[in-house]
Amino acid sequence: MKLDVIFRVAAKIFIPFMLVFALYVQFHGDFGPGGGFQAGVVAAAMVIFYAIIFGLDAAQRIFPQRLVELMVPAGVAIFAGVGVVSLFLGSEYLDYSRLLHDPVHGQHIGILLVEIGVLVTVAGTMVAIFYSFIGRGR
């Protein structure tokens, strides 16, 4: 693992773009293809790529296992929480119309929040499974 200079340099060039692409897929999902699920997988792929090149310990220093495992339920909580908030604002569960003054904007912001929930759960699950697979093999 000491001689793979090319991999390390290439990874350092690629990883920022992978993160930007994940965020692009996430926040541009209303206009182009993509959404929380795809963005979560791309973000998880970034972490896995980093872990493969630089080792599991280096990856876990940036994305600790606790954080990743916390992300798994946190995303579902965000998603369901948006629904509960819309209940308290006087509309039906998961009807985002009253989140903002304008129903159309409320729908838009609701979609964004929900997609963030999906992103968090998907990315957390993928990375957590990867961590436990690799951690077991050692």
Partner: peptide
């Protein structure tokens, strides 16, 4: 309704929000 041009996204998260919550 949602000012989202990508219909796939608006169906998945708004019209069919319950399904997507279930998937998550």
């Amino acid at each position: 309704d949602t000012s989202v041009p990508n219909v796939v996204t608006s169906v998945l998260s708004s019209y069919r929000g319950f399904d997507t919550l279930g998937e998550t």
